[in-house]
Design a binder for these strands. Sequence first.
DNA 1: TCAATGTCGAACATCATGTTCGAGTATGGT
DNA 2: ACCATACTCGAACATGATGTTCGACATTGA
Lengths: 180, 180
Amino acid sequence: MLQEALVALIEERGYERLTVQDVLDRADIGRSTFYTHFRDKDALFMTWFDGLREDLRSELDAMTEHRRPTDAGRPLGVIFDHAYRNQRVYRAVCGRQGGNAFTHLMQRLLFELLREHLCVAGTRLPVEIAAEYYSGALLSTLLWWVRQDFPYQPEELAAMCQLLTAPGVTASLSPAPHIP
Amino acid sequence: MLQEALVALIEERGYERLTVQDVLDRADIGRSTFYTHFRDKDALFMTWFDGLREDLRSELDAMTEHRRPTDAGRPLGVIFDHAYRNQRVYRAVCGRQGGNAFTHLMQRLLFELLREHLCVAGTRLPVEIAAEYYSGALLSTLLWWVRQDFPYQPEELAAMCQLLTAPGVTASLSPAPHIP
DNA sequence: TCAATGTCGAACATCATGTTCGAGTATGGT
DNA sequence: ACCATACTCGAACATGATGTTCGACATTGA
């Protein structure tokens, strides 16, 4: 209930200018009750984000199972799809008034995903740097897309990102070990 | 004086957990005096950032003048150099405790720079998207670099970014008009 | 000398935060 | 039915930051 109220209110008033009390009133929950479970507003938000993370993660896992070797850029599609199907939520949470709580958490999530992905691929550059670079790029693009009210189809956007990303990845791939 | 005090205190206590009063005490300035000039803490920070922006901008302009057609990735070097030469400031402002005031402003700055740059180049993708993508990537990398305490030389980092960026740009360049 | 401008500090109302406490309610095991 | 545990509630409270107001003082320059 708290989480629903939180997201609803972020959509209306914005995260920053949002009182713990507001959420409590909306969810019809006592003040002291809240503080026995959460340290503050951010803590509540994090637990909500955990849900989102797991949701997204499971979709990615589902994709990984019946994967064809051809679709290297598939994870991108899944991510943008996820945002597209949960427009209300994303609009609230990374819209102009979403605040930066989401931004940081989302970047870390993207960072982790990319780090795994790049680890497998292996790069000439330190993996950390590449992951940081791409996670920032993706996050930024995602935020832009949401804030512009989803001006493209998710597949289109995924394709664009793929176009910008792939060449750099292959360029920075460590040359395959030379087997004579 | 206010701006100096601000940066110094960000370095010590962090931007978020920083009181207007703290700044006032450090700068030895009256409370009411402050509020006749600035709306709040963020407003003060913005004026400070304006200084940084102009500083960086002038360095970029200086570079543009005696430019050789070979160095396409030069702006990157200038940006990282700027951070490297002002380590104290950057550490304070985009370190873990820098808060997000800086993040947003810096991304917009990078975005503007890239938009100009890409406009000239011309891309197959909407310029906005490419600029958003790369500004996010750069910002993220810059933040990482600063927070890790500058683990590479600025030229090295610029080269890495260049390696990750250039292929994507050329790939997304609109094909040159075919002149038979 | 005078007026304009800028400064000061103290006081104030306002608001959100996080904590405490006593009292009430639901659950589930015996 | 009984009881203990866990959970809830609301009201009250201390704290601390915010932004505003006011009258008094200083600095400047015509």
